[in-house]
Design a protein around this nucleic acid. Structure first.
Length: 542
RNA sequence: GCCGACGUAGCUCAAUGGUAGAGCAGGGGACUCUUAAUCCCUUGGUUGUGGGUUCGACUCCCUCCGUCGGUGCCA
């Protein structure tokens, strides 16, 4: 780290001087005490980060000394870089070789300042892309050109005014008449060629990752397009976006350990939501027929390639629909989002991964068939824990021992079925014991009307024909409470208030939860969830 | 939680027990079509932290911190 007095601010009050030739000894040893205002700091005697900062501070002071505000409040911009290039292309196609004139671009200087005597090339980056700037002494005039050369650093935000043209090397560029400093950058940017690769720095300082790695910035733009397309799709289907509490007195709607916090005004412990399900269903009781919410859920559990304790969930509830309707909705929604965000329903996974086709229809595979197909076990026949364990042993399968038949089925699904679901699949009709909020199938009460959309081997979400029988719901909750008492600390407490809501009557409803981060992973071909989250949680550095 | 790897200049990386280096960035100079510009000169280090072994530690050992990978957990 740099000496503290160079952490922008205090050093500005010091006088930067140069004393070439340099003295042998360092005149400013690193020191915790900032120097008093007016202290002379010999730039040529500094090393490391302090040297890099001092060089930029010196230029900042030169700008101020010339009476120019290095952080002006207003700018003028006529074009994004991409639009300026397009405008030139149009003129060129019509036979012109220059223009438009009067272009004013705003953005950050990136890459090297390539100076050759009386001219300089440098690229300016804005959100739409980059354009090369060409500064020439004979075009700008001695004074302005000299000032630009003396004051600019890579990383500075500037406004560049001029005329578009094509260089002899063939690059569409801006012949600059004037450069205005918009925001002086005081710290060096990551290396221009290889960019920033250190994973820890990329995550802790994502802004550096985004500004130096184009594909990262594009991925987060893509994420925004995906979420917007999801809203557009749901809005178009008549769903109403609502907001439910993040801080809840009783967490529910899933099986997970919650984050706890204290709500001072109410003087009680609250939990960060693990799902919004139970509140959204209350909305249906209240007469809203199609609702959705896109929000952060929090589950106090492990982090890996597909799990983040703080993640984004889309849940929607559709009155008078069932899980078959919701399956159709998911197929159409994901394909529509892919088209809107990517322009295609095909996605190629990285590292030689498969190409995935997201267009409907998706495979429908019952849990019973899936387990039968992948392991040869018929879970409808092996319908007790002992029988299922025997069938597993008989086939020599290695499955982590589970306390119940249902959890053993779940284990089989995770180990043998999900890896087979690379192309989009609706894994459906789960054991009722794994689905406490789902309706039973009318023709076979062992299974629930539930499905999980699975793509690239991992769950994108979860859906069911929502259980709206308050008496059965209470029984299911009580069964969960027994499991909790038996040591399953992921089971939520009974939510009596929710049961009371159901008891007033909730229409038949199809419900859905989609892990937005995972959908973004699939649609951007990203195999690690932290790469689709802007600022993933990191342990505080000491 | 467990196992393994990693942490060196602003960035990307070398240096396997014997004086911590390179490229880029930075500083000075030359250069009016470059784009990893080029050429000459050049500054820059508490090797993550704390301890230990040794005549001598970036290197070997231990502690701690952080990150990654695997694994466990995660409707």
């Amino acid at each position: 780290m740099s000496p503290p007095f160079f952490d922008a601010g205090s050093a500005v009050s010091c006088v930067l001087v140069r004393t070439l030739p340099r003295p042998k000894e360092r005149s400013m040893a690193p020191n915790d005490d900032p120097p008093p205002a007016g202290t002379e700091i010999d730039i040529d005697a500094l090393g490391g980060m302090a040297q890099l900062l001092a060089a930029r501070l010196e230029r900042l002071q030169a700008i101020r000394a010339a009476g120019i505000d290095p952080y002006p409040p207003r700018v003028e911009r006529t074009h994004m870089t991409a639009d300026a290039v397009a405008a030139f292309d149009t003129i060129e196609a019509a036979g012109g070789d220059e223009g438009p004139a009067g272009v004013k671009l705003c953005g950050r200087l990136v890459g090297a300042l390539r100076r050759m005597g009386g001219s300089m090339f440098v690229h300016l980056q804005d959100q739409s892309g980059t354009v090369q700037l060409h500064l020439r002494r004979d075009r700008m005039g001695e004074a302005d050109f000299g000032a630009a050369i003396d004051r600019l650093d890579p990383g500075d935000f500037v406004q560049a005014d001029g005329t578009m043209f094509r260089t002899r090397a063939g690059e569409v560029s801006l012949a600059v008449d004037r450069v205005t400093m918009l925001a002086k950058s005081l710290r060096p940017l990551p290396e221009k060629w290889r960019g920033l690769t250190d994973v820890e720095t990329r995550l802790r300082q994502r802004y550096l990752d985004m500004l130096s790695n184009e594909s990262v910035r594009q991925r987060f733009i893509q994420r925004s397009l995906i979420v917007r397309a999801m809203r557009t799709f749901l809005d178009g289907r008549g769903f109403l976006e609502v907001e439910t509490p993040t801080l809840q007195p009783i967490y529910g709607g899933g099986a997970a350990r919650p984050f706890e916090t204290h709500y001072h005004a109410l003087g009680q412990t609250m939990y960060l939501r693990i799902a919004d399900e139970l509140y959204l269903k209350r909305c249906l009781v209240g007469g809203l027929e199609r609702v959705y919410e896109i929000c952060k859920d929090f589950r106090n559990e492990g982090i890996d390639r597909t799990h983040m304790p703080e993640f984004t969930m889309m849940e929607c509830y559709w009155a008078y629909a069932d899980y078959n309707d919701v399956m159709a909705l998911v197929e159409e929604m994901v394909a529509a989002i892919a088209l809107a965000a990517n322009g295609t329903t095909r996605v190629t996974l990285p590292d030689g991964g498969p190409e995935i086709e997201l267009a409907p229809p998706w495979r429908r595979w019952t849990v019973r068939d899936a387990v039968q197909d992948t392991t040869g076990i018929d879970i409808a026949a092996a319908d007790t824990l002992a029988a299922l364990r025997a069938a597993i042993a008989e086939r020599g399968l290695h499955v982590a021992p589970q306390p119940t038949w249902a959890k053993t089925v779940d284990e089989l699904v995770g180990d043998y079925v999900e890896p087979q679901c690379v192309q989009p699949t609706f894994l459906m009709d789960h054991p009722v014991a794994l689905s406490p909020l789902a309706k039973r199938k009318p023709d076979d009460p062992r299974w629930a009307e539930r499905f999980e959309p699975i793509v690239a081997g991992f769950e994108l979400g979860n859906s069911f024909s929502e259980l709206n029988d308050p008496i059965e719901q209470r029984e299911r909750f009580e069964e969960m409470a027994r499991q909790k008492a038996a040591g399953d600390d992921e089971q939520p407490p009974i939510d009596d208030d929710f049961i009371e809501a159901l008891a007033h009557g909730m229409p038949p409803t199809g419900g859905l939860g989609i892990g937005v981060d995972r959908l973004v992973m699939v649609l951007t071909g990203t195999m690690n969830i932290r790469e689709v989250v802007l600022f993933p949680a990191m342990r505080t550095e000491e």
